[in-house]
């Protein structure tokens, strides 16, 4: 019985996969969880891009103190860059909370009230992003 249910789940999953990447932008019949899935993919790709950008930029630390400190003063503590940091934080918060939500639902810890969970995480995420934004922007030109 369990085998049969698992088989049915896999078939549904494969049908979903057949829609491929175009399935992401297909708005027909999309529920709240579907939007969360797209958001998770987009923020994930964005944060992965940042990760490698970040690793490349960190090589300037190996160049020496003056290379890093001038980057910091001229670029990273510039208000425009700090705003981009807020965008990064938003991506991390959205991806992280959505990931926790997916794990809670996927492992069967939360089965009922998924909509309430999504709403609660949405509110929590918004609060975290606002707190981060206020802190980051206040750092402008601090060094």
């Amino acid at each position: 019985m369990t085998e049969r249910v698992a088989g049915a789940d896999r078939r549904v999953e494969r049908q979903g996969r057949r829609r491929g990447v175009m399935g992401w932008v297909d708005v027909r019949g999309r529920r709240l969880g579907g939007w969360a899935f797209i958001l998770n993919r987009l923020t994930g790709l964005g944060v992965l891009f940042y990760l490698y950008l970040h690793l490349i930029v960190l090589s300037q630390l190996a160049v020496g103190p003056s290379a890093w400190d001038s980057l910091l003063r001229n670029w990273f503590l510039n208000p425009v860059f700090l705003l981009l940091d807020v965008v990064l934080l938003a991506g991390l918060v959205i991806h992280g909370l959505n990931g926790v939500r997916l794990a809670l639902v996927g492992f069967g810890i939360v089965i009922d009230r998924q909509k309430a969970l999504l709403l609660a995480f949405g509110v929590l995420g918004a609060i975290l992003i606002v707190i981060g934004a206020l802190r980051f922007i206040s750092d402008a030109g601090a060094k």
Partner: peptide, 10 residues
């Protein structure tokens, strides 16, 4: 202090 770490702080 100052938002981000300078070289020595890193």
């Amino acid at each position: 202090t100052g938002g981000l770490r300078d070289y020595q702080q890193v």
